[in-house]
C-alpha cells in the first residue's frame, strides 16, 4: 500500500482553486499522504458540494481514518452532513478538525506523513491555530561541535543554518519528520522539534545560530541526527 495505511486528509473549501492550492502545499511536505481536495460546487461555482466531500472522504480513506479541514462555516455544515450519510464504521474514523484551513491542513498532513494515528493527526491540526507563539531565544552558553552533555543531563548542539532559505516550509518539515522518528523530546531554540508550525514560526533564516537540545539522557542520537540534518543545508547548498 503506497500510503502505508496513513491517515488521509480532506481539504474542503468554497473555492476549487483554494482547495487545490492547499492540497499542493500540504503534499510538498507529505508526499505519501492521500490529501484530497473538495473545493467548490459540482459545477465549479463558489460553494461546497456534498457529493465532492463524500467522494473525497472515500478517496482519502485507506481504512485507518480521515481528517477533514474546512474553510468557512457552511463547509463544516456540508462536511458534517456528508458524515451523517457515511456507513457507521467509516463515520467512526472520520474527524472534522476545528482548525484554520492552511495551517491545519499542513500540520495534519505532516503528522499523517509521520504515521501518526487519527487522534494525533486531529490534535496536530487543532494545535496549529495558536500562531506558534515563538518564545524568546534560548538562554545558555555557547557549546560548539558535538553534543555537549551538561551537568543537568541536558544534551545540546549549536549549529549555524547554511541553506539559503533557513527553516522555511520544506526544511522545517524534514526536520519535524526526522524528530518524529525519535521518542525523546528534542527542542530547536526551545521549541518542540515535532511541532511543524511552531518551528516554522521561529522564522529562522540563513546564518542564524540554532540550538538543538534535549533533557533526555537517551536523546543524544536524536540531537546529533537533527543537528546533522540542519547543518547539512537540507540539500540546498
Amino acid at each position: 500500500m503506497a500510503d502505508g495505511g496513513r491517515i488521509g486528509i480532506v481539504v474542503v473549501s468554497h473555492s476549487e482553486q483554494l482547495a487545490a492550492g492547499v492540497v499542493e502545499l500540504a503534499h510538498q511536505m507529505a508526499p505519501n499522504v492521500r490529501i484530497e481536495p473538495a473545493g467548490g460546487t459540482d459545477d465549479g461555482r463558489i460553494g461546497t458540494s456534498f457529493e465532492l466531500v463524500t467522494a473525497a472522504i472515500g478517496a482519502a480513506d485507506a481504512g485507518t481514518g480521515v481528517v477533514v479541514l474546512c474553510d468557512l462555516g457552511s463547509a463544516i455544515l456540508t462536511a458534517e452532513t456528508a458524515m451523517d450519510f457515511l456507513d457507521e464504521d467509516q463515520r467512526e474514523r472520520v474527524r472534522i478538525a476545528d482548525a484554520p484551513l492552511v495551517e491545519g491542513a499542513v500540520a495534519a498532513s505532516v503528522a499523517a506523513e509521520s504515521g501518526d494515528p487519527l487522534e494525533t493527526v486531529v490534535r496536530a491540526a487543532e494545535s496549529a491555530g495558536g500562531g506558534g507563539a515563538a518564545p524568546g531565544a534560548p538562554a545558555g552558553g555557547l557549546g560548539e561541535g558535538p553534543a555537549d552533555v551538561g551537568t543537568s543531563g541536558r544534551i545540546s548542539r549549536r549549529i549555524t543554518l547554511t541553506n539559503s532559505d533557513g527553516l522555511h516550509a520544506r526544511p522545517a518539515a524534514e526536520l519535524v519528520k526526522l524528530a518524529s522518528t525519535f521518542s525523546q523530546r528534542v527542542t530547536v531554540n526551545g521549541i518542540d522539534a515535532k511541532s511543524l508550525l511552531a518551528i516554522m514560526a521561529l522564522g529562522l533564516v540563513k546564518g542564524d545560530e540554532v540550538e538543538i537540545a534535549t533533557d533526555d539522557a537517551a536523546g543524544a542520537g536524536a540531537v546529533d541526527a537533527i543537528a546533522d540534518l540542519a547543518s547539512s543545508g537540507f540539500g540546498e547548498h
Binding site: R45, F50, L77, T78, T81
Partner: peptide
C-alpha cells in the same frame, strides 16, 4: 437540496 445546494442552506434545509 443536500446534493444540489452549495451554500449553508443545502445542509440546513436538507437536514
Amino acid at each position: 437540496l443536500i446534493s444540489t445546494v452549495g451554500g449553508a442552506a443545502g445542509p440546513l434545509y436538507g437536514t
